[in-house]
Amino acid sequence: MIENQTTQNLPAGKITIGPLFFHWTAEKRRDFYFRIADEAAIDCVYLGEVVCSKREIFFKEFLPVVSERLQRAGKEVIVSTLALVTSKREMSTVSAYADAGFMVEANDVASLQALHGRPHVIGPFINVFNESTRDYVIKNNATRIVLPVEMAADSIGRLAGGGEAAEIEVMVFGRQPLSVAMRCYHARAHELNKDSCQFVCGLDQDGLQTNTVDQQPILAVNGTQTMSHGYVVLLQELAKLQNMGVSHFRLSPQDVDMARVSHLYRNVLDRKCDPAEALETLKAITDTVPFINGFWHGSEGFAWVENRA
């Protein structure tokens, strides 16, 4: 990691930009990362395609320039790998990143095998739900663990506390990934299949809103991925997370002003802004998408539970 003035001045609690789940055009993606490099309060950026290997080719040419610009701005750069690896071609992509010496976020156990014990990050798509699994992956040279989105506060506390051998990261903003599949639901929604998908996932830059038959917005479909309709927002919980020993806070890219979102979270982490006030500002940035925090409270994931503290 390249340290510079900005990152050195940041107090404990690092903010990361998780891998982009959506199929944005390569140019939009590049400009997004340039803005993160130049204007965001971000310590670490995860690049790489997690959802669908068919999309990988589009951004490939921009990867070196984006990665270089981010590193020059003092950001740590990590390459996230696919959440579901099934083909030989996908395996060789995973191995190529591992062999090229990139710091890799492993999202499928395939990556762990390809890494042969080299230092890595465990992504949220590998189930680390308990102390034994945490300790095992650390022994296998995981230096950071991004916990599964389903995890409730008490479990996060148990895994973040006591195990200083690895950093712990929790997703605190964005649509929560709820499942991965071989089948492409975006294609299905357009009466196509995965092999002839015409990249219709690109039509919905923030995910395809999916309602119940009673017209209640409930999910968002993004290619082979199913996500929450609401954005998880753990702003009021940041101090508690920090006290538990969580070191990294993940903002998952949505089609909103992520640089502004990052400053809000930074200010709350730095106690420069009241969480309740930040929540109001965030609502103005994110427009009509509801906020959720149910998993944190051990409730229905799509619920918003008012902070009692």
Binding site: A83, N127, Q176, S179, V180, M182, G294, E300, G301
Partner: peptide
Amino acid sequence: PMSEGRCFLSSYMTGLS
């Protein structure tokens, strides 16, 4: 249809995992 062991849809709707 979902990759098993990694599907949180049911807990998303019920709170039970």
